[in-house]
């Protein structure tokens, strides 16, 4: 598998990274996401990283950048399912993921984006 499927639910894009991505795949995923945002006019983006066993500085950068880029396009990003050991490692390395919201799982991530949406845009 060398392409991560991006689903759309309401005005939120959802994708789950299920395999360890090498750098080129990660960059391509970033491009795919931005294109999808542009094509669909989505308002929210949920990235499920619960299957990832490693988030190093490169992957951290890609995720953080993607969220910032999506933000410029008016999309709020939630990163969900970061494992405890990865949270610890990110902390110890001093990696900061900026411009991203965090949630425990997909469901809570959707909920979170919905709440943010209500604050920003009012109820539809």
């Amino acid at each position: 598998m060398d392409k991560v499927p991006i689903l759309k639910m309401g005005d939120t894009l959802i994708l789950a990274i299920q395999v360890e991505l090498h750098d080129k795949m990660a960059i391509r995923l970033q491009e795919d996401i931005l294109k999808e945002i542009h094509d669909t006019g989505a308002r929210g983006l949920v990235i499920d990283v619960s299957a990832l066993e490693v988030v190093d500085s490169f992957m951290g950068r890609v995720l953080s950048d993607t969220a910032s880029m999506a933000g410029i396009m008016g999309v709020e990003t939630a990163l969900v399912g970061i494992r405890p050991e990865i949270a610890i490692t990110l902390q110890e390395m001093g990696l900061e993921l900026k411009g991203v919201h965090f949630a425990l799982n997909l469901e809570k991530g959707m909920e979170l984006l919905q709440n943010i949406g209500e604050i920003f845009y009012g109820e539809d």
């Binding site: 750098d23 066993e53 490693v54 988030v55 190093d56 500085s57 490169f58 494992r83 405890p84 050991e85 990865i86 610890i88 490692t89 110890e92 390395m93």
Partner: peptide
């Protein structure tokens, strides 16, 4: 343990990259 495994794996990822 899992946390140390992840620390080591991440460090190796940085160095090999």
């Amino acid at each position: 343990g899992l946390a140390d495994q992840t620390r080591i794996t991440t460090a190796v990822s940085e160095l090999s990259r």
